[in-house]
Nucleic acid binder design. Structure first.
Lengths: 349, 349
DNA sequence: GTTAGCACTCTAACGAGGCGAGTGCTAACA
DNA sequence: TGTTAGCACTCGCCTCGTTAGAGTGCTAAC
């Protein structure tokens, strides 16, 4: 059997109606609304076919139909294709969404939180955003300073001006000269290096070059190396998790508990971010419907993610989690708008 | 009417039974369990009195009784008094709770997260912990380093080894000598100063002392001053928010949504922390029952908080949020154990 | 002051019945 | 051959009445 033009129209009508009402939609409803004038009986026949083909489901014999994951997938693909076309006109529209314009925030953290909040408030779904991830991270600058006699603070600046600190306790006092030498050694050796390339061999070589006072220097080098290597886990900010309670199909204890846990533990969101980033070259926006989601606790949700670019090779992810019957149209626009706004903002600054 | 000895016993029996079962407790149950052998009829009479006095409530005419907020308050006060006595023996007990011993964590953040997780896992309630707050924060050390020609990174170390970074873009290149001078100026003037005391006057004086190159130096000083002043908002880590779904009286949409929001937004938790810190001199452990909680969304919960001390004047708060019928006994022990463990850990290091 | 006994109250659980939405199928129609 | 009208049927949901059980409040006796 084949998805002819009429079946497509009917399918889309069913899905749209369901998105509106949240209730199973019957044949009569469609027969009335639709521009192709058909009786409910005809619609019923077509619906039966659509059920056979797996696009829709009837919860029980005498209820209307609701979209299956496959149905949603069809709808979303359709929608994305349309968006692709419209993108140029849209871009030039004066947008009413300016309300969500992000005020200038001095700190990245605050900005990200604000974005998440804006996103959840605008869509009524749960939102998340990951701090930008440095793909090929290079070392830009290292500075050791003596804090107290036997305590050094190391400041490590990475490409993208991300800063790490490390306090190093040493066994014996270190004199200014040694400290200076150490600073030079570290900077000449490591600056511009990708973190992945800082191997044991490199570290060993540095220790060797240290010559005298090898003991204390080795101590410091090890501490610095460790600090560089330690990749902190991805910062993720969330907002509007409580929105899930607005959708009865997600608000039962078990599901809600799962989603809340995912939002609190962040572990699963981290997976989601990596998944998205690994696909980011393809398209920009990803839609996961139900089982498609790479996250266990979101099998009953739809997840929409997108990648934003802060700078060459520095990416982050924003995402929306909601019920399968989410307003995909609005979500796609919002998320598209927001990513481009983010991109602009970073490029400007 | 007066709360005589027998009434107290009965009241405590009711509350304990209710904590166990979570269901309204009837007169027969008490008459059987209790050591003071009384018939259910007598118990009923006493219960009627207790209702009049406001310690217990009957949900409807023919159900058992459940404790009121006032009843819980009585119970908790009783319990805290007992604890006070036992504290010495307890302290010496070999504790079975060693399972929750915190593994050595290199980073404060990780430690705090771990504590929160341990707390929620051990109690089956929702847990939170605030990062330590520096009451009278003093400046320990400042270091400016040149990153690029017109870009400086300032590292500011506060008492308690809390570190702040700030990247400063300047208008014209700065030479080594000026940088050195600036470093000395900042350190001699500011080291050991409480942040509250860094007034405009102090800053003005520094600018004046700068002499030549006043322009560039003023720029840097302002940036540093601003960075010092900017008090980041309290970091709060949470864990086990999903535990609330284990308690039907909290798991309905409205309540759950409220609690989840409080946990996600952190704003209300921040209030809670400040409230606790402001009382921290009194006792150590605070119990808020129902309406007593300083947080709107937790009117149906009980909240137990305690203060831990990282160092003189540096405090943080840990807290547990659960249903009113929480196992106060266990929670109090757990939280007491944990704070003292935290105190020890910090004092050691 | 305590207890036994009894009528009363209230909730939760169950099942029957009716309603309404919607289906699937058949037969007729263009 | 595709479309439609008509009709019997299914099924979830709501309401209502009934029942069982737990627990009370009160009275009268000890």
């Amino acid at each position: 059997m084949d998805l002819d033009e009429r079946k497509k129209k009917i399918l889309l009508a069913i899905i749209k109606t369901y998105l509106d009402t949240g209730e199973p939609v019957g044949s009569r409803t469609i027969s009335k609304i639709e521009d192709l004038n058909l009786s409910s009986a005809t619609i019923r026949n077509e619906m039966a076919d659509l059920v056979d083909m797996g696009y829709i489901i009837q919860p029980h014999t005498s209820a209307g139909r609701i979209p299956s994951d496959k149905g949603y997938r069809f709808y979303v693909d359709q929608l994305m294709a349309e968006k692709e076309q419209q993108v140029e006109e849209r871009e030039r529209e004066t947008d009413e969404m300016r309300g969500m314009l992000i005020e200038k925030a001095d700190k990245m953290e605050r900005l990200l939180k604000q974005v998440a909040r804006s996103l959840s408030a605008n869509t009524n779904y749960a939102a998340m955003i990951s701090a930008p991830r440095y793909n090929m991270n290079r070392l830009k600058f290292i500075q050791l300073s003596r804090m107290e006699a036997e305590r050094i603070v190391a400041v490590i600046v990475l490409e993208g001006n991300m800063i790490k600190n490390q306090i190093i306790d040493i066994d014996e006092p270190i004199d200014d000269e040694t400290l200076l030498k150490l600073n030079m050694l570290l900077n000449t050796t490591l600056n511009g290096m990708a973190i992945e390339d800082i191997s044991l061999a490199v570290i060993a070589k540095m220790k060797q070059q240290a010559g005298e006072q090898a003991g204390i220097i080795a101590e410091v080098i090890d501490a610095v190396a460790e600090s560089i290597k330690a990749d902190e886990d991805l910062e993720i900010y969330t907002s509007g998790a409580n929105n899930i309670f607005k959708y009865p199909e997600l608000a039962d204890n078990e599901r809600a508990s799962g989603i809340i846990t995912a939002f609190e533990e962040k572990k699963q969101l981290t997976d989601l971010v990596y998944e998205t980033l690994s696909h980011s070259d393809e398209k920009g926006i990803q839609v996961y419907i139900g089982e498609e989601a790479p996250v266990e606790n979101m099998k009953d949700c739809s997840v929409v993610t997108a990648t934003y670019e802060l700078d060459e090779g520095i990416h982050g992810t924003i995402g929306i989690i909601g019920p399968k019957r989410m307003d995909y149209d609005k979500v796609l626009s919002t998320i598209k708008k927001l990513t481009s706004e983010l991109d602009d903002m970073f490029k400007k600054s």
